[in-house]
């Protein structure tokens, strides 16, 4: 009997390690769709489409799954993780992890001149300069969107995307 209980607990603890964050799967799918609904200037359509991620986040794994099989138009997609603002290099889309929300004003100045869609995941992200900001309305995953913040970086955003998001200006 003792061995049964111990084995059951062991299975339990081992299995805890396999935790996967379902929420991040959907955020990754949303990001992939944002790419489909945003048009970058010609200069940014060269080479690979880089998805930057600021901060360690399970979304990385999800995005790698998507980018391994999908393309953005003719461009292959690649995921690049930046652990701090200093490391940020040119990328078409930059996802700012919830824990890095306070760094948005700093990174906006850092990417000055890049055609980057900034997607944040923290309260007040748009006000700090991001183009799209994820939010949870109750248990529902939604996003805020600022046409101004996106287009000021030389990008064009589809009317469809604007309609689906909560407009914040």
């Amino acid at each position: 009997m003792k061995s049964t209980i111990l084995s059951a607990l062991l299975i339990f603890y081992m299995s805890c390690l396999t935790l996967s964050a379902q929420n991040e799967k959907f955020k990754a799918l949303f990001l992939y769709n944002f790419i489909k609904n945003v048009e970058w200037p010609q200069s940014a359509k060269q080479g690979d489409l880089i998805i930057g991620i600021l901060g360690n986040n399970p979304i990385t794994k999800e995005l790698e799954t998507i980018t391994s099989s999908q393309k953005a138009g003719n461009q292959s997609m690649k995921v690049k993780v930046f652990s701090n603002v200093e490391e940020i290099s040119n990328c078409q889309i930059l996802y700012v992890s919830p824990g890095k929300g306070s760094a948005i004003p700093l990174l906006i100045s850092k990417i000055n001149g890049y055609s980057t869609l900034v997607v944040s995941d923290s309260k007040g992200g748009i006000q700090q300069g991001s183009g799209i900001n994820f939010l949870l309305d109750g248990d529902k995953l939604k996003f805020e969107i600022s046409k101004h913040n996106i287009e000021s970086r030389g990008l064009k955003v589809s009317a469809n995307l604007l309609n689906l998001g909560i407009a914040v200006n």
């Binding site: 964050a21 379902q22 991040e24 959907f26 769709n33 489909k36 248990d139 529902k140 995953l141 469809n160």
Partner: peptide, 29 residues
């Protein structure tokens, strides 16, 4: 499947996310 989800438009994806409640919080709840 994941492939199906990747093929969905953002509009449909949002429908799925909201209708099925696939956000992690809902599953855990």
């Amino acid at each position: 499947s994941y492939q199906d989800l990747m093929n969905l438009s953002l509009e449909d994806l949002m429908v799925v996310a909201n209708k099925f409640g696939l956000s992690a919080d809902e599953i855990l709840e």
